[in-house]
Simulated scan of single mutants.
Amino acid sequence: MQRVLIIGGAGRIGSNIAKDILTHTDAEVTITGRNTQQGSITQQQLGSRAEFHPLDLANPPELRAAVAKANLVVHSAGPFHYRTTDVLRACIEQGVNYTDVSDERSFTRKALALHPEAETAGVTAVINTGVFPGISNSMVRQGVEALDETTSIQLSYVVAGSGGAGVTVMRTTFIGLQRPFDAWLNGRWQSIRPYTERETLEFPAPYGKANVYWYDMPEAITLQQTFPVKSVITKFGVVPDFYNHATRAMAHWLPPIVLRSPKTVEFLAHVSHSMTSVTDRFSGTGVAMRCDIKGQQAGTATHYVSTFAHHSAAIATGLGTGSIAELLLSGKLKHPGVYPVEQVLSTDLFKATMNSRQLEIHQTLNKAEITS
């Protein structure tokens, strides 16, 4: 019997990953966390093929021992701004495949730097999985393959309220506002200030027209490495729209030294979580994504658009990461090394896992709808 170790599996994101793995594979799941009471409750909800094991990531021998018992490790203990690559390194040392829900640029770079070691050890490590990044990366690959030549990629994301993902996602949002970041624009890296250049785009129902802003995502660097394009744009927004105005105010009015304080991040994260616990009742906790790719097909300038929506951002993240876990466990995804999703997951496999989870990607090409 195969066993999956989910680091942070007692949390909202981790437990949704566990549910997907238990649904689509025969594997047994070990979830970890620091809160024993929460872990026990989550284990009972997941059923007899799941167990809870308390784990301290700051204890290397304990971490290595837990990894050694697994066939696959899923790292879902964010925010990844604060994480080292110790879990990935332990997997490489133990010869265990790995995937994660990392969503932060510096962590992505540190993980990709371990590619030679993972390749030598025969370990397949797929990072940046989930919904965004994750499903979004595969949407880009699908679109690039639909064109003869690609010049620009834009990924735009909208989350309703908390997204159902808990206070950790709030921390991640405010950490992402702390510093300018580099974006690949017109063939060169340029410094961008987060939460600028508000743009109104059309998203799937029930969102319709929604507003998004520049936001730092790891796709900004991995897509530039994967595809020969002149520009990669990543934007993010929240509904209801008043959250965008509040977030922009935090990004531009608070002194940098205050915004970068861990105490400030904790305060803002908990205040925001309290607010969304009220507004989630009418806004929902869903996610919508839009992929705009410009290029050429048959010598003609072409604009490809694909969209995706789900009623829960947390559940969608679980489905995205769970699908990668399923492929790793089955041996269908076997490429030793460390990769972002778009470099290692074929469009055929992507479509198969989306179909098995009844998830739809809607696509248009020059205003003519094409099937997924």
Rank of each mutant, 00 (worst) to 15 (best):
F236Q: 07
I221H: 09
V265P: 04
G299N: 02
L223E: 15
K230C: 02
Y207W: 13
Y304D: 03
D280S: 08
A249D: 00
M217F: 14
H270D: 14
V271W: 08
H303I: 00
S272N: 02
K209E: 14
V258P: 04
R281A: 12
D280W: 12
R198N: 04
E266H: 10
A210P: 05
R248I: 03
P256I: 02
D241A: 15
T234W: 00
L201W: 04
P206Y: 08
K235V: 06
V278F: 12
S231C: 05
P262Y: 04
I221N: 06
N244C: 09
V239E: 08
H273I: 03
W214C: 13
D292M: 07
M275N: 11
A246D: 04
H245I: 06
A298M: 04
T196C: 10
V232G: 09
A251F: 04
T279E: 14
R290P: 08
Y195G: 01
F236M: 12
I192C: 10
A246R: 05
Y243M: 12
V238P: 00
F282H: 11
H303A: 11
V287Y: 09
H245F: 03
Y215L: 14
P194N: 08
V212W: 01
N211G: 06
S277P: 02
G284I: 09
Y207G: 02
R281P: 04
L223T: 06
A210C: 08
P240Q: 11
Y213F: 15
W253K: 02
F236K: 04
G299E: 11
Q225L: 06
G208F: 10
M217Y: 05
R260L: 00
I233A: 13
W253M: 05
V305W: 01
N244H: 01
H252E: 02
G286L: 07
V238L: 14
M275L: 15
T247Y: 03
F267P: 02
I221S: 07
F203I: 00
H252I: 01
L268R: 07
T222P: 07
A210S: 15
P206R: 03
V278Q: 03
A246C: 09
A210K: 13
T264I: 03
D216H: 11
E199M: 12
S283L: 14
L268A: 15
H245C: 00
E266S: 12
Q297I: 01
V239P: 00
M250E: 03
C291R: 01
G286I: 06
T247N: 00
K294C: 07
D216N: 14
H245T: 14
